[in-house]
């Protein structure tokens, strides 16, 4: 049985449809990514899956429990961590763990065992008496994760869990997530960091409340098959972008840092061709080559396609 089974899930707020006919399933031990821009409906979906928000229509079964029928039953089977690392900042590390242990009804013995585990996992041993407010973001993030999995839930929801955290802590966090998945815990994570999405076993791209695409990273990249991406480095990237857009074989362009990515309409057009034409247009090109599509290329393609 799948850990999460979502069928035609829809949520309307008045005239606005925040989540529109969403269907997907997540297997046990899978890291499932929810990718989408702000306001795409990621958080609304999570809130429905956690039993906080009633679906307008459709069903969602989480850990074998129908969310619409038994929201309280769902809450006992899941862990939840939000981007705000919702801990009590005026309490110490230990007191936060004790509180969440109490909230989930952990007995004394189990709480102590789990406390040891969380302190170890978060690297907070020796800081039990530290006020949470004085911890760095990375530590607070790991403590929040620890509090969310204190009661050993089979399914964990992470709502943009890496906001405001330094890259090193982010890397460490994802290692922890991988470990949890290896232990058979199902993870559903929302993010708008595309590099992070690459950690996910499968990804659902959400746009305007609808499922725009779903699959592994490799599968998603296949969406751009037959339309090569050319990366151009030039002295004046903006001028290069304008010149590329004027060419008939270029479908669209987008800026990637200091380079320009051009999506070509069809395979076969040699990059050397473009260099010559760019130089004719007066753009000094330092390099021009076909590259593998990144997830960002795919995401931009999906979002722009649905916008037009």
């Amino acid at each position: 049985m799948n850990a999460i089974e979502v069928r035609q899930l829809t949520r309307r707020f008045g005239d606005f449809t925040a989540v529109d006919d969403l269907s997907f399933s997540v297997g046990r031990g899978e890291i499932f990514g929810f990718l989408g821009s702000n306001g795409a409906g990621k958080s609304t979906t999570i809130r429905m899956l956690c039993g906080l928000l009633r679906p307008s229509s459709g069903t969602a079964v989480v850990g074998g429990v129908d969310v619409g029928a038994d929201p309280e039953g769902v809450k006992r089977r899941i862990g939840y961590m939000s981007q705000r690392f919702s801990l009590y900042e005026a309490l110490t590390v230990d007191q936060n763990i004790t509180f969440f242990g109490g909230v989930y009804g952990l007995g004394r013995e189990r709480l102590e065992a789990r406390r040891a585990f969380v302190l170890e996992m978060a690297g907070l041993r020796g800081r039990e008496k530290t006020l949470t407010r004085t911890l760095s973001a990375g530590w607070r993030q790991r403590l929040a994760l620890g509090c969310a999995i204190l009661h050993e839930p089979p399914i964990v929801f992470l709502d943009e869990p890496t906001g405001g955290v330094d890259p090193l802590s982010r890397r460490r966090f994802w290692l922890l997530i991988d470990q949890l998945a290896d232990e058979g815990i199902t993870i559903l994570v929302t993010t708008h960091y595309l590099d992070e999405a690459e950690h996910c076993h499968r990804i659902a791209v959400i746009d305007a409340g609808r499922l725009a695409a779903m699959g592994t990273v490799a599968e998603l990249k296949q969406l751009l098959a037959g339309r090569p991406i050319v990366e151009v480095r030039a002295g004046e990237p903006v001028a290069a972008m304008r010149a590329l857009e004027a060419m008939p074989e270029v479908e669209k362009t987008s800026m990637f840092g200091t380079t320009v990515h051009a999506v070509l309409r069809a395979a076969g057009a040699a990059p050397g061709h473009l260099v010559g034409r760019l130089q004719e247009a007066g753009v000094a090109v330092s390099s021009c080559e076909v590259v593998e599509p990144s997830l960002e290329d795919v995401f931009l393609d999906l979002v722009e396609r649905s916008a037009s």
């Binding site: 956690c50 906080l52 309280e72 809450k75 006992r76 899941i78 939840y80 939000s82 705000r84 919702s86 801990l87 009590y88 900042e89 969440f100 909230v103 989930y104 009804g105």
Partner: peptide, 14 residues
């Protein structure tokens, strides 16, 4: 404001 309310609402505490 701190978001802890939402965290508790996600838990079995009624």
């Amino acid at each position: 404001e701190a978001g802890t309310m939402e965290q508790i609402r996600m838990s079995p505490v009624g």
